[in-house]
Amino acid sequence: MDHGTPTFQTNLFGIPIVFDLATCFMIVVTSLIVFFVLFFMTRRLAIKPTGKAQVLVEWLMDFVRGIITSNMAWRDGGRFHFLALTMIVFIFAANLIGIPFTFVAPDAEHTLWWKSPTADPTVTLTLAALMIVMTHYYGVKARGFKEYAKAYAKPLPFLVPIKILEEFTYNLTLGLRLYGNIFAGEILLTLLLGLVTSGSVIAAVGGFIPMMVWQGFKTFIGALQAFIFVMLSMVYLSHKVSEDH
């Protein structure tokens, strides 16, 4: 079941820069799909909505606004609205894009070209790092470096090492939770797909319904994980940005 990974390596000042080509391809595809779907959903905007598309996008905006306002005042969190929106739709689409089909190149390594970008830890950890680094940036910006640094010594000064370590674990847990859920889902989906396409009629019939069930569940997981990722990002952001907690 091992799939090969197409890589491209270049050296920048002696440091090897590795590109996972399949993942990069899927990132771009996901971004394009997300952009064009949303772009065409919002071409005919009206104060009195004429179609379901606008209502759906508006619902999404209210939903994400709800996520942010459940963690911090809108005065503080309003500027993260678009970021959180983009994050949730990107992760949602990235989680779902591996579900309907897959594509494995017919070469010796079974190179896997079509998968969820979020089934790659590099992707999820990068997104997590983006959010965590941002929390620090806005923490300093919103409250000043002194207040920001003081927050590490609260509630007790000897917890400082743990608090610093915590920032790294935030990053790891945020990224790996998403990765683990999606990657495990893809593995099981690949296994079920292998069962269905193994050639045996019984296996095909027996594997088909679990595969459908699993696809449905994976859709749910995809939406849930996108929500959790954004929710936790906003929780971490509010820790750094808000005064009161």
Partner: peptide
Amino acid sequence: MATAFGTSLVLLVSFLVLLGALSYFVWNPV
């Protein structure tokens, strides 16, 4: 998979571009 910084770079760039494009074309008008 080790240290695929290239992928990170691609992701960051495409995500930021997506953020900008969506902000301009979708989120702001809505």
